[in-house]
Design a protein around this nucleic acid. Structure first.
Lengths: 219, 219
DNA sequence: GAGCTCTCGTGATAGGTTCTAACTAAATCT
DNA sequence: AGATTTAGTTAGAACCTATCACGAGAGCTC
């Protein structure tokens, strides 16, 4: 929620006030997004909630898109922080998976803002890709601690030859593959659950999630 | 694209004209969605493209949301048709998987309109859930033809006890589980690819997709 | 502390959107 | 042919994003 990642120490009073208003704007923005989705986010409505009128918000965010980008960045950072905090007490993929699900269910629209439908032309700014890389690194670390029992696949050589995303991580290709499937499979269950595609089907999404997690660890 | 599913035979000229304008509206709507996303869809812009002005569209769709709902329904139906056509020449999960990916890459925003971020309050109308059930049935049929080698999991009994989504399909729980993971895993890779989360990572998403498909069949 | 400067918030305005309402004109049905 | 239904129009209300010019005040400098 707070301006995590930017320098918060020793600011002028004006900068402090500015930062506080910015986070207040974002707080109300998250409330709107949680209840009506990101597409319904209205700067005007936020301004009214803050007791100021319309164009004042443009002192704090250049545009609606810039506000949304800031929200995406904060959401990413929140996930990265959650991952880092979880990994601090033992780099365990299982703990990471459950932390991911908790984080997602805590605010489904926040998860979907990060991993859901993007605007076709949208390109994430530099700061965001860096956070994504950190999340990937934490996941790789955790997967590297697992006993190396996954059978080699025809995909592994290609993955070994294209490991720019691993960013120098010394994991063998089998671990890279495991980290990737860890991501895609959990996201597969989670995103369908959050989007409501399991409602009315009867089964418990949490059990499917843990079943996928089990399969990830034992195969 | 066409009004698949509704009765198209023997209409009055007025009904015919009405149906034709409706599909023309939807055609332009899809173009807008493909280039700017569903949130940027503008009834005004569509009307101008059709040479008529603004509120005329409300003769054909009660609201913007109703138009989008119709688009979602058509997209679902298009996927169901693709699945049915693929299954007609042998109920093969591999063929189904490749048909799914082709269909998704053909129009990423169409896939994301169905499986992407929904509006929080949105509830799919009856007609749509019926199509989803048909897609599920086709998938279950295909998975039932596979050699029954998947090892039983602790999730299987729960799935056997909550099989309302299978809608009377006589598949054993292992097949239900396989169909479910088939769906979630392929969606996991596909949705992340379409949302652009693999861009810049280096590897080929198509190979990851087939790798997941392989894992689905051999384990 | 006095004065300068910079910034915050304002109202006005332009141009966009969805959607309703009243009216006209044309096509269809009886 | 006459009555009725329907398509499309313009006008307008209520939103929205975003820009501009202005006034008031907070903060920095001397």
């Amino acid at each position: 929620m707070a301006e995590t990642g930017s320098q918060t120490g020793s600011q002028t009073p004006r900068e402090r006030y500015r930062a506080q208003v910015r986070t207040e704007i974002k707080k109300h923005a998250w409330e709107q997004i949680a209840t009506a989705g990101a597409s319904a986010l209205s700067l005007n409505a936020i301004a009214k909630q803050l007791g100021m009128s319309g164009p004042a918000l443009y002192r704090y965010f250049d545009s609606r898109d810039e506000l949304i980008t800031a929200l995406i960045r904060d959401a990413y950072q929140s996930l990265a922080d959650t991952f880092r905090a979880t990994a601090r007490s033992g780099a365990d993929p299982v703990a990471l998976a459950h932390a991911l699900r908790r984080w997602a269910l805590e605010d489904p629209q926040r998860y979907l803002l990060v991993y859901g439908t993007p605007v076709p032309g949208y390109h994430a700014p530099e700061g965001i890709t860096a956070i994504a890389a950190e999340i990937m690194a934490t996941l790789l670390d955790a997967c590297a601690t697992l006993p190396a029992n996954p059978a080699p696949t025809p995909f592994d050589p290609h993955l070994d030859a294209h490991r720019t995303w691993a960013d120098g991580h010394p994991a063998p290709p089998a671990v890279l593959h495991r980290a990737l499937t860890f991501w895609t499979r959990l996201h597969g269950v989670l995103s369908l659950e959050l989007a409501g595609h399991f409602t009315g089907m009867g089964f418990d999404p949490a059990l499917l999630y843990t079943a996928e997690l089990d399969a990830l660890l034992t195969h």
